[in-house]
Design a binder for these strands. Structure first.
Lengths: 188, 188
DNA sequence: AGCGTTGGCCAACGAGCGTTGACATGCAGG
DNA sequence: CCTGCATGTCAACGCTCGTTGGCCAACGCT
C-alpha cells in the first residue's frame, strides 16, 4: 500500500532523495544520472524507477520549492528589504534544494517553468503587499528577483570566489537597501 | 595550411560556429549535441571534429569572452554605474555569445572557470579604477557582478516574463544607482 | 592531362544513458 | 508450514552520444 505511512523501504526512499538532491544541485539535470544517484545511495538504479517512475518524477519529488517568505504585511515597511535578503540567504543555505532547482532551470525547460511558477506564486504577492501602485508590481518584483537570483547564481551555483568570500551580514547590509529601493522608492 | 587566411572551407567553418553559438546559448553544453549543431549547419558531424578537434575545442572556438568594458577612468565618477549597466545590456543583446557562456558555466565546470576568468580579468580592473580603497575592490566587484549577472540570468537565460518586459531604459535607470552605490558609496 | 591536397559524406565503434522485466530474497498472515 | 507481497538484484533492451577512419569528388598546381 503506497499510502502506508511507515514502510520498510523508507530508508531507501530517503537515501535516494538525498543523493538526488545533492546530484541535481551539483551537476544539473542532464549530468545528474540515475546511475550516479543510485551509486551514491548504494542501491540499484532500478529502485529509482520503481519508487519514482522516471527521472522527471524523481526530480519532481526532490524539489518542492517553498520559499516560506515572511509575512511582509506585519513588518515595518522600511525593514522589508532587510528581511527579504536575510531570509533568502537562510533558505539557500538550508540545503541544496534551491541550488538544484536553479541549476536545472537554466538548462531544462521544465525546470525554467518551475522557477517562473515560484516567482509568480511567492514573490509577486510580497511585492503586492508592499507596493503602493499595483501597476508597478511586476516591474518592481522583476528588479528584486534579478538581484536576489544574481546573488544566488554567483554565490551558490558559480561560486565566484569574490562572492563566496562575502560575509553573510555584509551581504545583507549591502543588498537590503537595493531591494528596499526596488520595492518602495519612487520610480527613477 | 591552417594559417591560410582564406580557405575554401570558410563558409562551412563559420556555419558551424554560428550554429554552435546558437545551440550552446539555447541548450547549454550537454544538450547542445554535435549532431544537432551539424544538422543546423547542414554538414556532417565529422566535419566539426575535423575543424575543431572535439566538442570542447568547438566551444572554445565559439566563445572568446571580451566584454569590451569602457574606460571608466575617462568618465565622470558619478556616471560609472550608468555606463556599466548600459554597456552590459548592449553586449548581451549583441549576439548569443554571452548567453552561451553563462548557460554553459552553470552546468559545466570548465565553463564556470571561464566565467571566473572574465570576472577577474575584466571586471576587477574596472572596480580598481573606481574604488578608493584597494582592499574593498573584490567586495565591491562581487556585489556588482551579482546584480549584473542576475539581470542577465533572469532576462536572457531564464527569460522570466516580468524581466523581459522591462524596457531597456528603465533597467538602466533602476540598476545604475545600484551599481554606482556598490562601487562608490561608503560601506554600510 | 596527371596528381596531390582539400572538402565532404557515410558507416561504424564503444560507451553511457534511461528504462524494463525476470528473478531471488525476506517478511508477513493464515 | 505455506502463500502472497514488498523489497532488492541482475542482465539486458534500445537509443543517442562523441568520435574515428575510409572513401569519393572537386579543386589547384605543373
Amino acid at each position: 500500500m503506497p499510502v502506508n505511512p511507515s514502510r520498510r523501504s523508507d530508508a531507501t526512499r530517503t537515501a535516494i532523495l538525498e543523493a538526488a538532491r545533492a546530484r541535481f544541485a551539483a551537476d544539473g539535470y542532464e549530468r545528474a544520472t540515475i546511475r550516479a544517484i543510485a551509486r551514491d545511495a548504494k542501491i540499484d538504479p532500478s529502485m529509482v524507477m520503481r519508487y519514482y517512475g522516471n527521472k522527471e518524477g524523481l526530480f519532481a519529488a526532490v524539489v518542492s520549492p517553498d520559499l516560506r517568505l515572511p509575512d511582509v504585511a506585519s513588518l515595518p515597511r522600511e525593514e522589508v528589504g532587510r528581511a527579504l535578503v536575510s531570509h533568502f540567504l537562510r533558505m539557500w543555505e538550508e540545503n541544496g534544494e534551491l541550488t538544484a532547482i536553479l541549476r536545472v532551470g537554466v538548462t531544462n525547460p521544465a525546470g525554467a517553468e518551475r522557477l517562473q511558477k515560484v516567482f509568480k506564486d511567492q514573490l509577486l504577492p510580497v511585492a503586492e503587499a508592499v507596493c503602493p501602485d499595483p501597476g508597478q508590481v511586476p516591474e518592481r518584483a522583476a528588479l528584486v528577483v534579478s538581484q536576489l537570483l544574481g546573488l544566488a547564481l554567483t554565490r551558490y551555483v558559480l561560486r565566484l570566489p569574490a562572492v563566496t568570500a562575502l560575509a553573510r551580514e555584509d551581504i545583507v547590509a549591502w543588498l537590503a537597501p537595493t531591494v528596499q529601493r526596488y520595492l518602495t522608492a519612487a520610480r527613477p
